[in-house]
Structure formats: structure tokens, C-alpha cells
């Protein structure tokens, strides 16, 4: 429930703190507020059904109007509600980008949203009933354990983290592919590759043993790679802070060309 409250709080919903999913009146008030201030799927006349109709009926109709992937039965209400709030947040975000309040290209947040869609975990997230299946939850925990990650906690969160880890280790960098390619090298080719690497990425000192030198050169390369990654993360963080602090100005009236 906490993450739902945080999201509602971010949207500016005044009753975020007191909301409870089993409280019919509270849920109805939330739907009315979301539709009136954020989502605006209904015409103004249609909105009255959220107020007048029995909650189950109104709820069913509203989810259908939004093309929600959830059956609106009581058991999945929390997930469905989270999904509706998600819709409201993405609309709010799109508005902010359109207003120019957020630079979508510079905002790392957009990347995360986009990646969610591509990830295998996204399909599971859309079908909440899958997470009720003990066999699937067990498989997620086993996957996490194999990746050396904590396996406790929400299965969906664990699955997301596992997807991320797999992507990082075996994804775009093609580490697995290059490892396979290395296996196929003849010994002569491997030595040539290593010699070239030592030329392009010299160690800078001599240990007196060519094999140790080679190992040290590889360690140094890995270290430099990590350092670059760290620096990139630092730069991304600075950009995120700049979104808050930066406001560069010039005033050509102040300028004066000297003699």
C-alpha cells in the first residue's frame, strides 16, 4: 500500500494518507478525483456515473473505458487501483513534458519507463494472477538466488531486479558472445590479440614476468572500465541535480567591448 500512497501523494491527492483499498467510499472519492483532475476520460456528463452508480458497476465501467487489463473483481482491486494511478502519473508526466517543465530526453526517468515495456517482467506485471502461482514465485526466487541477489520481498520487485541484473551481465555488452568467440580462437590468434592489447593499453610498468604483466594489464583495463562507468554515473547525477539548480542567463546589455 505504501507505494500507492507515495504515488498519490506525488499527484497531490489530499486524502492519500487515509486511503484504504477496502473502503468503498474512499476508493470512490479517489476515482472521482483522478478522473476529474488527471485522467479526464469521461465527458463531464459521464462523470456523474462515478458518483451515482453502485461502486462495483462504476468501477467495472471505468476500467473498461480505460482498457484496463484487470478483471474488476474485489480480489485484484489493489492491483487495478495501482494501475489506474499509474495511468494518471503517466498522463501527468506527459503534460509536464508538453509544458516544458521536464526535459524528457535528459530525464533518466523516461528511460526506466521505456525499459519496463521491453522487459520480460512487464508481461507478468500486467497479469497479476500469475504472481499468485506458487510455482512461478518459486522460480523467481530460484533465479534471484542463482544471480546472488536477495530472494525475499515482493516477487514482482525481485523479478524486475533480476531482469536488470541479467541485462547488465549478459545483455548489450555481449560479454557472453565475446566469451564464446574467445573460445574459438586458436592459440596463435589469442596471443596476437593479447599482444595488441598490451600495445594499445600498456601497463605502464614492468613486473619482470611477461605473464604477470599480461594479467596486470588486463586487471588495469577492467579497472579503467569500472572507473569510466563510475564517472558516467557521477555525470548523470550531476545532470539530474542541474535540472533543479541550473538557470544560465546572459544579458547582452551588460556586455562591453573594450578598446
Amino acid at each position: 500500500m505504501t507505494s500507492l500512497r507515495v504515488k498519490l501523494d506525488a499527484l497531490g491527492y489530499p486524502e492519500a494518507e487515509s486511503l484504504h483499498v477496502d473502503d468503498d467510499d474512499g476508493v470512490r472519492q479517489l476515482l472521482i478525483w483522478l478522473e476529474a483532475t488527471k485522467i479526464r476520460r469521461y465527458s463531464v456528463e459521464e462523470r456523474s456515473q462515478l458518483v451515482d452508480a453502485p461502486l462495483d458497476e462504476a468501477w467495472r465501467a471505468y476500467l473498461a473505458a480505460l482498457d484496463a487489463p484487470y478483471p474488476p473483481d474485489a480480489g485484484a482491486r489493489a492491483q487495478a487501483l495501482a494501475w489506474v494511478v499509474g495511468v494518471a502519473i503517466s498522463l501527468e508526466y506527459a503534460d509536464a513534458v508538453a509544458r516544458g517543465a521536464i526535459d524528457a530526453e535528459a530525464d533518466p526517468g523516461t528511460e526506466v519507463v521505456a525499459m519496463d515495456e521491453e522487459r520480460p517482467g512487464a508481461a507478468v506485471a500486467d497479469d497479476a494472477s500469475l504472481l499468485a502461482d506458487d510455482a512461478i514465485v518459486g522460480a523467481i526466487r530460484a533465479l534471484a538466488a542463482a544471480l546472488g541477489m536477495p530472494a525475499e520481498g515482493e516477487p514482482l520487485d525481485t523479478l524486475r531486479a533480476a531482469c536488470h541484473a541479467v541485462h547488465r551481465r549478459f545483455g548489450a555488452s555481449g560479454a557472453a558472445a565475446s566469451a564464446a568467440a574467445l573460445d574459438e580462437l586458436t592459440e596463435a590468434e589469442a596471443v596476437e590479440l593479447a599482444t595488441n592489447m598490451e600495445k594499445t593499453f600498456p601497463l605502464g610498468f614492468d613486473t619482470g614476468d611477461p605473464l604477470v604483466n599480461r594479467a596486470a594489464a588486463i586487471l588495469k583495463l577492467l579497472y579503467v572500465h569500472d572507473l569510466r562507468e563510475l564517472q558516467t554515473q557521477i555525470n548523470e547525477l550531476i545532470v539530474a541535480i542541474q535540472n533543479v539548480t541550473a538557470d544560465p542567463k546572459t544579458n547582452s546589455k551588460l556586455g562591453k567591448v573594450g578598446r
Partner: peptide, 12 residues
């Protein structure tokens, strides 16, 4: 870019 002796900058 302001240049020269006695020039003044454009950044407030």
C-alpha cells in the same frame, strides 16, 4: 564574447 581592455561580461 566581450574582448579587449576594459571589456565587461554578459553573465549577470
Amino acid at each position: 564574447i566581450p574582448v579587449g581592455v576594459g571589456s565587461k561580461g554578459v553573465i549577470p
